[in-house]
Write a protein that binds this DNA or RNA. Structure first.
Lengths: 198, 198
DNA sequence: TTATAATTTGAACAACTGACCAAAAATTAG
DNA sequence: CTAATTTTTGGTCAGTTGTTCAAATTATAA
């Protein structure tokens, strides 16, 4: 059976309020009580549509990340050279973060903070590992094609992703951060840091 | 009156167990019950030596950060040129992190996660702001002396500190991270990214 | 309309938190 | 030794958490 109209509306409402809560209060301070108050519903409703808190958080991550990766991938695929793709990766990441601040802040806070009751991270770290491996492979291709100098591709990839992640953390408590300025600087920075000099 | 021998011993014991707990379970999962179990004492003892949980956390941060900054500053001051100081800053940061993994993981987790009951960060963000301003001023001096190219000094400083912070997050769940390899790559990376080309 | 199903409420639940405290125990001082 | 002080225990307290549930309400269908 397809989800009811009410069910679809409630699920998106709850997800939106969860995002707002996490972006403003942080994951640790975000409870069903807080979300319900914001959505002006009884907190029983949340449990009615999401079996557990973990499932709600997974739904948030799934929704935001699918749009995010689609955006970034489309921008990378439009570029011809590997160095242009690196530039596009940085710019696309920060552009999406700029226009989807709260969803991105919330999503990466969930990924970082949420734990199952046995202490494991709620969102599998395979996801980050996949991103890391893919970006490292990209960089390595640039090295083989002579566009990039000889660096440790895996560490360089981890460095780029780490910066992206940390920027989201700072964005949470520095709302007036100029992401466009960061994008400009980082594009130059990683061009200088990766390109083949001779 | 000076603190008793017992008091001094208990305080360091409790601080050490708190560090171990946070480094292994994360700040969110660290409770008085957990710390007390690890120290094999009643949890009332913790409250006896630390008025509040916040005070305990502040004590941890104070202890670790004083040693950390002393280490880094001494290494910077030993270098003659600004570019050598930048290199020393990166190397000293990662070297201390490498030899003091758990205390550093715990400290930065507290700084990032701990909140007072009104939602403010427990550790004043002035501290990070001071570091940021100081590093930016250093970089700017390098620009004025012609060692560095023209970049946004504040963003470059924030970038370096962000990388340092994010590495500590990753260290928490990737115990076999090769910090020496990161130090090598980052020294080269930021040399290429900052130096005056002509 | 009536009957059926979907939705919402608000209270209760067990588990946990940090803080608090009186009594017991251990240590130190005279 | 005794007396005073410090330290520790173990329990209680009020508060919060996610989850469950019967009852009330609302929507849907026949």
């Amino acid at each position: 059976m397809n989800p009811t109209f009410i069910e679809a509306a409630r699920r998106t409402q709850i997800i939106d309020c969860t995002i707002a809560c996490i972006a403003e209060l942080g994951y640790a301070q975000t409870s069903f009580t807080q979300i319900a108050k914001r959505a002006k519903i009884s907190k029983g409703v949340i449990s009615y549509y999401f079996a557990t808190k973990d499932e709600l958080m997974r739904a948030v991550v799934r929704e935001v990340l699918s749009a995010f990766t689609a955006f970034v991938v489309s921008h990378i695929d439009a570029e011809p050279t590997v160095s242009a793709q690196l530039r596009a990766f940085i710019e696309a990441n920060l552009a999406f973060m700029d226009t989807h601040r709260k969803p991105m802040i919330a999503t990466f806070d969930i990924i970082r903070s949420a734990r199952t009751e046995d202490g494991q991270t709620l969102i599998s770290s395979d996801l980050a590992e996949t991103d890391l491996t893919a970006l490292a492979a990209h960089l390595q291709r640039g090295q083989e094609q002579g566009e990039f100098r000889a660096f440790n591709a895996r560490i360089m990839a981890a460095t780029i992703l780490a910066l992206r992640n940390e920027l989201l953390v700072q964005l949470a408590y520095k709302p007036d951060l100029d992401l466009k300025a960061y994008a400009q600087e980082w594009v130059i920075l990683f061009d200088l840091a990766t390109r083949q000099s001779g």
